[in-house]
């Protein structure tokens, strides 16, 4: 029996997941996941807090963890043993949360990625949004602040929209200007938000179309909690007659950390040089 820990250092939050592996069988067990918003704090402090929180919650000591793997801005995790790239981790975390998926769409604070993978979570192809922030969680948070809406209410508000307004999908500056104009024209808040969701969803669905994604697609990253955005992606995919169904898991924001912890186990087994194949850690 051994423990691994994955830490996903994102642009706006740090997430950590602790997993337990029993080489005798039974598959990996997710013990706990914790997240901390960075909110202008020192990122290393946030990483330390998040790490402590996970260990304390599970009543384990740092020395009990066989392998700590970072993902995202991993160089900030001084106590890491190894590092894995975000798409490597999101594909593995996605497969853990929804074993039937062969594509994930990772929607973070600054970037979004669509990834296709095989049944072992090996990345086959990926596409990223361009550098403009208008497809990102940070942009959505800014808009929510301008509109005086709590971030967690965005999704439900969007689902009640009747006549969504079109928003620029190219540039965050233009999109923000669009929103200011809409507010001055008296457009309902839910219609504005749905318009923004559709604009963001258009870019994400395009990425998946290029990758020829099919079947269930798991939304991961912080924006996966936004039911309005997930619904907007579904709406556009159906309009485009794409054979995909977007799903989200309550643990979707932790997909990167979970994936890192799972890959950590593969490496731990390999480095330990046991006779057991690393595939048991992948199970």
């Amino acid at each position: 029996m051994f423990l691994t820990l994955g830490i996903d250092v994102g642009c706006s939050a740090v997430k950590a997941s602790l997993m337990q592996f029993d080489p005798a069988g039974g598959g990996p067990k997710l013990l706990t996941s914790e997240g901390e918003k960075i909110r202008k704090r020192n990122v290393k402090d946030v990483i330390g807090d998040c790490y402590e929180k996970v260990l304390t919650k599970q009543g384990v000591k740092a020395g009990d963890v066989a392998y700590v793997a970072s993902t995202g801005e991993g160089e900030l995790v001084d106590f890491r043993r190894g590092h894995f790239y975000s798409m490597t981790c999101h594909s593995r975390g996605g497969l853990f949360l929804a074993p039937q998926v062969r594509a994930v769409v990772d929607m973070g604070a600054l970037h979004a990625k669509a990834i296709t993978m095989d049944e072992h979570a090996r990345v086959l192809e990926y596409r990223m949004t361009s550098q403009c922030a208008s497809g990102s969680g940070q942009f959505l948070e800014n808009i929510a602040r301008y509109l005086g809406v709590a971030t967690e209410d965005i999704g439900q508000l969007s689902l009640t929209a009747k006549q969504p307004e079109t928003v620029s999908g190219i540039c965050a500056v233009l999109a923000e200007t669009d929103v200011i104009n809409m507010v001055s024209r008296g457009i309902a808040t839910n219609d504005i938000i749905k318009g923004i969701h559709l604009s963001m969803a258009r870019r994400l669905v395009s990425l998946l179309r290029v990758l020829k994604a099919e079947g269930d697609v798991l939304a991961t990253g912080g924006l996966a909690q936004d039911a309005g955005l997930v619904a907007a992606m579904q709406e556009l995919a159906e309009k485009d007659k794409m054979a995909v169904r977007f799903i989200a898991d309550p643990l979707s924001p932790f997909a990167g950390a979970i994936g890192a912890a799972l890959w950590a186990a593969v490496r731990h087994v390999k480095l330990r040089g046991t006779s057991r194949s690393s595939s048991e850690a992948r199970a």
Partner: peptide
């Protein structure tokens, strides 16, 4: 970084 990072991941895992 993305290119070399995924390269390193591939070697480590596959």
């Amino acid at each position: 970084k993305e290119e070399t990072g995924t390269f390193a991941d591939s070697i480590k895992l596959w």
